[in-house]
Amino acid sequence: MKARHVQLIASYSARYSVRGGIGLVFLLLSLTFGLLVAHTMLQPVEIAAAQFAKGRNADPARATQRALEAITEQAKPVVAWMLTPSTREPDAEAKRAGDAWSDFLLDDRPALLSAIFLILLFGWPLVVAFGAFDLYAGDIGSRQLRYQLLRVDRGSIYFGRLLGMVVTFVLVLLLLGVTVTAYIGLKLSVYEWPALLGWSAYGTLALVVVSLPYVALCAWLSAGFASSFASLTIASLVIGGVPLFAALGGRQFEVLGYASYLLPWGFQLRLFHPEAGQVALAAGGCLLQAALFAWLGHRKFTRRDL
């Protein structure tokens, strides 16, 4: 494997990945999903702020602040429930931990951004499946890779495309983060810019870290099929099916609930935990799974008929 080849393939792949039909669909899907989530969070605040301002003749910034506080108070129990990690009836200790976590996200950090990131985390893995399912499968089927195979080793093709896809995801997430942050900062004016920018950068980085194992999983699956459709179907079923299986199975047998740890679903929320140790563990888990899936994909890609 040569670094020059990996870099060339990554940049070519990133440059042209959104020019095809699938790339455009992914770009639109990810931006639509991200902005829809942001809109869902921001709209109630804007409506409530308008009502505050109308009824009390308050200035807009003050009205938005009041509306946000009111909505945050209402949202806290829901967020605390979301963050309580148990498939059984949570005990008092778990509830306290969940409350502390939600206080951190909604009081200590810009609450709107925290809410947007939390909801994005629940849907983003499925968006990843739509972006990365065709890393290799379509080109294996149409035998496009054959023009490259005598020019580079298979490892360079595999990791070059994987890297190009990660770069594409980083760019899309950056675009999303900048858009949402700019809107909150300019339109609502309720947070200090340093706090907003810092948390936005952290959240975007967390989403990038969460994306890595899912992209690597898609790479592994995509390397195993010669059909884009088969790859998309399997990737979606695996990414969506694991948490569903864990949630439903966990109700019957507690041990089945741990199936969510097969993918980052089981621990990805902890990237937004107040304790650095938990964040490090979650990030380590994501990177470890990314490495494992990438290795399995590489093994498949370098041994199969192309």
Partner: peptide, 21 residues
Amino acid sequence: VADLQGRMTILPQDASFQRNV
């Protein structure tokens, strides 16, 4: 085969090129 880079080329019968580039 990677050791043959640049020394051998091929016109495959059934390979296709990218449509959008």
